[in-house]
Design a protein around this nucleic acid. Sequence first.
DNA 1: GACGTGTGAATTGTTGACAATCGTAGGTGG
DNA 2: CCACCTACGATTGTCAACAATTCACACGTC
Lengths: 206, 206
Amino acid sequence: MTARGLIRGLREQIANQLRDDILSGRFEAGARLSETMLADRFGVSRGPIREALVQLTNEGMLVGKPNCGVVVASAAPDSIRELIVPIRRTVETYALRQFFDSITDDDFAAWEELLEQMKKACQKKDYNATVELDVAFHRSLLVRAGQPDLLAIWQTIVARIRMHFRQAHMKMKDPMRIYAEHRAIVDVFRKGDKEAAVRMLEVNIE
Amino acid sequence: MTARGLIRGLREQIANQLRDDILSGRFEAGARLSETMLADRFGVSRGPIREALVQLTNEGMLVGKPNCGVVVASAAPDSIRELIVPIRRTVETYALRQFFDSITDDDFAAWEELLEQMKKACQKKDYNATVELDVAFHRSLLVRAGQPDLLAIWQTIVARIRMHFRQAHMKMKDPMRIYAEHRAIVDVFRKGDKEAAVRMLEVNIE
DNA sequence: GACGTGTGAATTGTTGACAATCGTAGGTGG
DNA sequence: CCACCTACGATTGTCAACAATTCACACGTC
């Protein structure tokens, strides 16, 4: 437990916070992130900072240069959506088909929990939270499919377009629609209609 | 310069060597990789080893567990190909279209250099090298397109199926065919026929 | 004024040491 | 014989210090 409330296993915690900061615009694209500054800021040594920076560099959130540290990657251009949407549809519907026939009550309980949190985040217009919950919902499908390859691919994709999630959420006239769409997906899952579920998932991905 | 010939900036070099070892089967799936052992083996401290392991974990080559180190990930199932081939085609042809009209002499020089190395590797039946050169060729297209998003996505995909590249290469009756196919792609680039180039690239991706 | 060179501060990259955690082996009790 | 507990060695996670590199600024020369 550090002075900043972080516990052992710092890398992931630091990476998560930095990712949040980048997505929230607290670090601009092109901004240089200094290990020394971050170590001061998190109240830890540079070792775990470096590891977190490696992770975020691999996610594409940062761009590294030997001996010169890392800068915040520029936002993915909008044109990338035309590419990523079909890829996401391919990957996520594939995952859904893998496990649809073995959905359990535990699965539904987990989704209901996510939906409850999503509803609250929508009510509060907390867009960082709605993004993370939207991502978490879709991630749960990949995790449930139980294929690490798919999950790795999907995570890379989503890391690159998180900013787009956020922009899309903020543009919605009624943020409750985020919740409603995912509510509807889970409801179709309950009906056991796989093809309807696949179609609804595809509609959600855009 | 370490005793093992490594120079400063160890992470990438170590990651590259470990990746090669994993792909060559020198570490079995499920095998635990100990930082201490690797540090001894490479003749360096554990710091850069840890960073390399973070990188390879993000690539999906390794699976980490807090406080317990990392194990070698199991090979991607063959069924993943049916998913990855279309994704690769989507990504790589998109990239090719982005830069095709601005191909330079420097581009051709780089590809000729790759092809020369590929030819030699084929003659020597050095399948690790043919895989890396095949990957390098395709990677060059992504790099040339100048979109970090695409490159990150592509790298994640390819990291997961490198073993498949290797198996495919080893199955070829004549390894020179690897060279010949890529030779033909570059030749079509020289003719400036974009659509033919896209089609030939798609045929190569399988 | 423009260009080149040198210097020093800040930072990155690596190392070795210390703290914390885990897994295994052995001992004890029921 | 089995279950539980404890101890210890090996390893992971983190820290602070040292070495190497980069960049910005100041100064000198043309």
